[in-house]
Amino acid sequence: MKLNHLVAALIASAATLWATGAALAQDYRFKLHHFLGANSPTQTETLEPWARAVEENSGGKVKIEIYPAMTLGGRPPELINQVRDGVVDLVWTANGYTPGLFPRTEVIELPFVYLNDPGAANLALHEMFETDLKPDFPGVEVMFLHVHAGHAIVMRDAEIRSPADFAGRKMRIPTRTGAWVLEALGAVPVAMPVPDLPQAMSKGVVEGALIPFEIVPALKLQEQAGQYVELADRTRLGTLSFQMSMNKARWDSLPPEIQQAFRDASGPDWLAELGRIWRGTEDGGIAMAEAAGRSHVTLTDEETAAFRTVLEPVVERWIADVSARGIDGTALVDRARDLIAKHGTE
């Protein structure tokens, strides 16, 4: 009888030690919510590698569970409030889905401030964050900011080669700066999250969009759009910025070594690599469109110069808008351009 009690005690003790060890091996669980699909390049080539890097840096103490396609509820513009309110721990979201909420960060999205290099823009955002951009992000701890490869021109069937070709056309865009671009071109901006685009294009709600090519496979856009246009040297009509952010209270509750695991996964090396990843997915998107027999056009230097002339007032409009809010827009534009040029040559 005593032996049986001893064996039972040993088994119970071993079970307790195993449970304690398992808990120590994975002490911190986080829910990461985003708006794109589970098979999108964003999840498979950005969010999953970043999450695994954090987990490895923590020695297995962190587990990040990714919830794609708004599976935890809500609409894409609600993500920022979900993380600020602590409904979720982490979000990856497009800043432009909540117009005017991130005014300083919009500088990187402006046409001919952003040109064609997402890695350089990512590093510029990183360098500007503490000195210039941080006031845009109360209630969250930003892990990193980044951009996509930029707003190319995707049309259902119309051919675009000049600003005049946009006149009166209904075009999807997710940001207010992008809407200003379309207004300057004479188009009609229609705001909507990117998952809504294929249906909107098929029903004629919009004739086209300013969007990167990388989204083509995820949305099967080659089934709806026949024309894919970019400016000379792969220049784009601005870009869209994104954030990976954690609820601030959750961040503040973490011990320094766990915070460092996140920081080490989110630094300049990652941001440069992220630029390469998004450029690579861009190439894959346009290859899919071309394989479907769609038209891919690169404008000439002269045609591109015409767009620069028409769109410079968009930058001036943004400077005036944020200056009215007490933000030195001219200084931000100059700094962003300088840093993009700097990191583009490294």
Results as ranks from 00 to 15, higher is better:
69 A>R: 11
75 R>C: 00
86 G>I: 10
58 S>C: 07
87 V>H: 08
67 Y>P: 00
70 M>T: 05
76 P>H: 06
76 P>C: 09
78 E>T: 09
71 T>V: 14
69 A>Q: 14
95 N>I: 02
75 R>D: 11
95 N>C: 10
74 G>N: 05
92 W>M: 06
67 Y>A: 12
60 G>P: 07
55 E>F: 08
90 L>M: 15
60 G>D: 10
91 V>N: 08
87 V>M: 04
56 E>F: 01
88 V>D: 02
84 R>T: 13
83 V>D: 07
94 A>F: 00
94 A>L: 13
94 A>C: 07
95 N>E: 12
72 L>G: 03
79 L>C: 08
83 V>F: 07
61 K>D: 01
73 G>T: 10
80 I>C: 02
76 P>Q: 07
70 M>H: 05
79 L>A: 10
79 L>S: 04
95 N>G: 15
75 R>K: 15
85 D>C: 00
66 I>V: 11
67 Y>G: 01
58 S>P: 04
91 V>I: 13
73 G>Y: 05
95 N>M: 12
57 N>E: 04
63 K>N: 13
76 P>M: 08
95 N>Q: 12
89 D>M: 06
83 V>N: 07
83 V>H: 06
77 P>R: 06
82 Q>N: 10
85 D>G: 09
74 G>F: 04
66 I>E: 02
57 N>P: 02
72 L>D: 02
61 K>P: 02
